[in-house]
Every structure is written in structure tokens, then in C-alpha cells.
Design a protein around this nucleic acid. Structure first.
Length: 296
RNA sequence: GGGUAGGUGGUCGAGUGGUUAAUGGCACCAGACUGUAAAUCUGGCCGCGAGAGCGUACGAUGGUUCGAAUCCAUCCCUGCCCA
């Protein structure tokens, strides 16, 4: 059958078998329980006995963040190394991958949900401009790279200052002081754009035939709130269908489209990684694995 | 056959004589990205050109006018209603 994740899953498992590896996922949606089909989570059969970490470790009604991810993932990576095995990080969430590659240190700090909600309300009522100006006064440097319209980032600058008394710029500098303690190689999977899009379209049809709608229905019955999980492509669109806001056809097309755009954004992210080795997924799995084995 | 609404750039959809290569939205392309990240945001987007600029565009053809996507005529096509 069709390989998933541009074939990432298949290749990572084959590689793990060859080099005595274990897999640490770097995927912001596969961390959630009960979100299997839509997040294209590898199945038990696919895993073929290779241990996988950072899958199914959060309830969908829980808030989750890179900081949480980084902490947990590093723990697993260290454990794997301790066992004398090779950690293989696999996934498409650029932010999570970055947290590992650049060894970013997130300070212990709970998110002040109340303050965030207050700022969001303020943005709603007064517009973003006043918040933007306020953020500029606090941290002019950070604001150079943040658009007047980027609500989330503007609010984040304000949040950081309120919680820590430090600016985002200061915090960022501090967080990256430590060097990455691991020796690693980065491989990026890619293929010709039209082939990639074709593959995505097919994959979405398969997901739906495998019961995506049922999965989402169950999820919605199970929980009332989804701070981050319902941002997932495939889930939010299916919810719209279940709420009778869009038709099934519209839902299908929207999921395909959003997934294509997401894949594009991932690529933009990965292009920035220095010294990465690009794998052409139109080649055979064997060829790509050999390519990996050559450099590690 | 009669009536009626319409045919605009990849698409949806504004514009109803002159700052209009033509508002927007979407797609598409490119980019950003440190605690929501499968999120959020930015730029480009008729062709050629580095650029000034040049060329070609609003169903088709012809006409009115200094000037038309916009007015007129004929034709072609589509939706709806009546026969």
C-alpha cells in the first residue's frame, strides 16, 4: 500500500532495524491520544516492534507546547543512547525539530492563561495596534521581526515580559547559549512538487476511507475542549462537516488543500537547516536507506 | 419560440465611459517562525524586462467617442422563468 509521510515512516523503521535504532517522533499532532488516522500515526503493525516515543502521550484536551516536547524528547533520546541504541528523530514539526537541533533551553514557566485571554480580549475590542505599540516599548528588537498583524507573536512578547520580567530578546539569547550536546545528521524527505501533491491527495482519500470521520466523531464526544489538538488538519475540517457547515466533498477538498499547503510550509522550514541531506522519495526505499547509511 | 439575468485575469467575484493591468477573497509561488506551531504571519502573483517601459487583456465581431470592461448593433454561449 501507499507509504505515509512521503514514506518517512517506512524508511525510519527500516533504518531502525538496520542500525539498532529507536524512534522519537517530532510531530505536534501525533503526540495526542486517539488521533491516529488523521495524524497519520504509524500503526503497531507498521512499527514492526521498533519502539516509538512521543506518540500518544497527551490527552487531546490538554495544552501542549514545544517546551513540553523538548523536555520529554530529550529524556527519551538520552535513554536510548544509554541503552547503546541509536535515537532516530522522525517528524514534520519544524519548531519541535528546531528545539532539538539548536538545543533550545526553555525556562520553567507556566503559561498564564488568564493574562493571555485578557490580551486576546483586548485585541478583539481595541484592535491589535495598541498591543503592538506596547510590545514595541518593551522589546523593540524582537518586534522588528514581528508583523503588526501577528496577534499570537505580539501577545507572546507581552506575556513573556509579564511572567518573567525579561524581554523575549533576552530570553531567546539565554535559551540558545548551550551548544547541542549530540552528534547528529539531518535528512529531509522530498519529491517533485506535483508528485508530492498527488500523493497527499491520495493519502487524504485513504484516511477518509479508513474512518477519519468516525475518529473525529468519537473524539468530539469524548472531550469538550481542545486547546491545541483541534488545530490539526483533517480534524478541524471534519468537525465543520459534522456540524453541517460544509459538505463532505468540501471537507475532503479542504483537507487536501490544507495538507498540501502544510507540506509546502514544512519544506520552507527544512530548507533552512544547514548541512541537511535531501532524500528523493521517488527513489526506492533501499536506495535512500543506503544513502543514509553512507553518511552515518 | 417568448421573457429575463448574465458572460471579467487560474478561480470566485467587484467595477458600469477617463488616475483601471482592472478592488477583494481563494488557489498557486516564495518567505518568516524559540512555550497554540498541522498554528500564526509576510511578500509576489497577465507576458517580456534588472528598470524605466513595452506588449496583450474584461464571450466574438463591428460601431459610437479624443478615450470603452463599461454605451450601441449583430452574433455565440450559460442560468432561471413562461410556452
Amino acid at each position: 500500500m501507499d507509504q505515509q509521510h512521503h514514506g518517512k515512516t517506512g524508511i525510519s523503521i527500516e533504518l531502525a532495524k538496520k542500525i539498532d535504532g529507536e524512534i522519537v517522533s517530532a510531530d505536534s499532532m501525533q503526540i495526542y491520544k486517539y488521533m491516529d488516522i488523521g495524524s497519520a500515526k504509524p500503526t503497531k503493525e507498521e512499527m514492526q516492534g521498533i519502539p516509538h516515543y512521543m506518540l500518544d502521550c497527551v490527552e487531546p484536551n490538554k495544552r501542549y507546547s514545544v517546551a513540553d516536547y523538548k523536555k520529554e524528547a530529550i529524556k527519551h533520546i538520552k535513554d536510548i543512547i544509554e541503552k547503546g541504541k541509536v535515537p532516530i528523530v522522525v517528524g514534520g514539526t519544524g519548531l519541535y525539530i528546531n528545539s532539538l537541533i539548536y538545543g533550545i533551553n526553555y525556562e520553567e514557566a507556566e503559561i498564564d492563561q488568564e493574562y493571555r485571554t485578557q490580551l486576546e480580549k483586548q485585541a478583539e475590542e481595541e484592535g491589535l495596534d495598541s498591543l503592538y505599540e506596547k510590545a514595541c516599548k518593551i522589546d523593540r528588537e524582537a518586534m522588528q521581526n514581528i508583523s503588526r498583524n501577528d496577534k499570537k507573536r505580539i501577545i507572546r512578547v507581552l506575556e513573556i515580559y509579564k511572567q518573567t520580567g525579561k524581554t523575549k530578546t533576552e530570553l531567546d539569547k539565554k535559551s540558545i547559549q548551550n551548544e547541542n550536546e549530540f552528534d547528529f545528521k539531518v535528512f529531509i524527505t522530498n519529491m517533485q512538487r506535483d508528485k508530492l501533491y498527488e500523493k497527499i491527495n491520495k493519502r487524504v482519500d485513504i484516511m477518509i476511507s479508513q474512518g477519519l470521520i468516525e475518529e473525529v466523531k468519537n473524539l468530539l464526544e469524548r472531550y469538550k475542549e481542545y486547546p491545541t489538538a483541534m488545530q490539526a488538519i483533517g480534524y478541524k475540517e471534519t468537525k465543520l462537516y459534522l456540524d453541517k457547515i460544509i459538505t463532505k466533498e468540501e471537507m475532503t477538498e479542504k483537507i487536501k488543500m490544507e495538507t498540501r499547503r502544510y507540506a509546502k510550509r514544512q519544506l520552507t522550514w527544512f530548507k533552512r537547516i544547514d548541512n541537511a541531506i535531501w532524500l528523493n522519495m521517488e527513489d526506492s526505499e533501499e536506495k535512500n536507506i543506503n544513502k543514509i547509511l553512507e553518511v552515518i
